[in-house]
Design a protein around this nucleic acid. Structure first.
Lengths: 143, 143
DNA sequence: CTGATTGCAAAAATTTTGCAAGCCT
DNA sequence: AGGCTTGCAAAATTTTTGCAATCAG
């Protein structure tokens, strides 16, 4: 996972430094969405001298290269997710719980859009917003 | 558009004040994605005393109520879009250009997920990431 | 009236940047 | 060796908060 990102960085002419590898390792670790602050904290476990600036610079770089993307998770501040393939989740607007799912019915649409608009599509993000089972019940009882 | 949001606010027990109405009007205006700073600027055209704090407070309120959502547009800082129905776009990772589209093949998936997970889905966000026609050409020529 | 809401300004948090030192290739 | 990268610390930007005054209902 992080190896692949490392490889892409290197192939694009960027250097593989210890700080960058630490960030990549953190990102590859859980495959989940982290804030820059969280990346810094975990990165420092791997490479204690890691600086906040480097985290931001690396995240920006990876985002530019399309390997990372911001994701909305209800919490404050930005969150980033590995792109890998598509990323799908439902977010409860009430309690903030997120549920990930894998069904992907988008490949057809992806293909259609790519053709129609001449776009080369690399990945996608699909988020549904609503109320989870639990919060629906809460709402109902408070009405 | 903004009338509907105003109505929902009022029904939820919030007061309709001039500052809030200004923010709603700005958001309803173009239906597009704005940063908080942009909302403030445009809001002040309508209500000159509008304060930045009120913009943030109102945006947060609307987001909590599910009428607004953050969207990634490649630029720095957060951007917000009216929820209305679904929101779909392609984002070029290279030049940042966004293309909106309307095809929505998600209602079926939405239904399936709602049933399977007991989620009450209110809206969704679908973003594709890739390279636009123009940037594909640039890449090719620089290789 | 009465308490929700506002603007202001200060505080906090987040992100960016300049620069000399250090490290990858 | 050469120049991309880094860490640091300061600067810029963005977001949050306390509080007295104001306003909607």
């Amino acid at each position: 996972m992080s190896e692949q990102m490392a490889k892409r960085l290197q192939e694009a002419g960027y250097r593989l430094t210890a700080p960058r590898l630490a960030v990549l390792q953190v990102l590859g670790m859980k495959g989940e969405d982290l804030s820059p602050a969280e990346v810094l904290k975990r990165g420092r476990v791997i490479y204690p001298d890691l600086s906040r600036a480097t985290v931001y610079r690396t995240l920006e770089l990876l985002t530019e290269m399309g390997m990372l993307r911001p994701v909305y998770l209800g919490e404050r501040g930005s969150h980033l997710a590995c792109v890998a393939e598509g990323h799908h989740h439902l977010l409860c607007l009430d309690c903030g719980r997120t549920i990930h799912f894998d069904d992907c019915v988008l490949s057809e649409l992806e293909h259609t859009l790519a053709q129609r608009l001449g776009f080369q599509i690399k990945s996608h993000l699909l988020e549904f917003y609503g109320l989870c089972e639990h919060c629906q019940r809460d709402k109902a009882s408070s009405t």
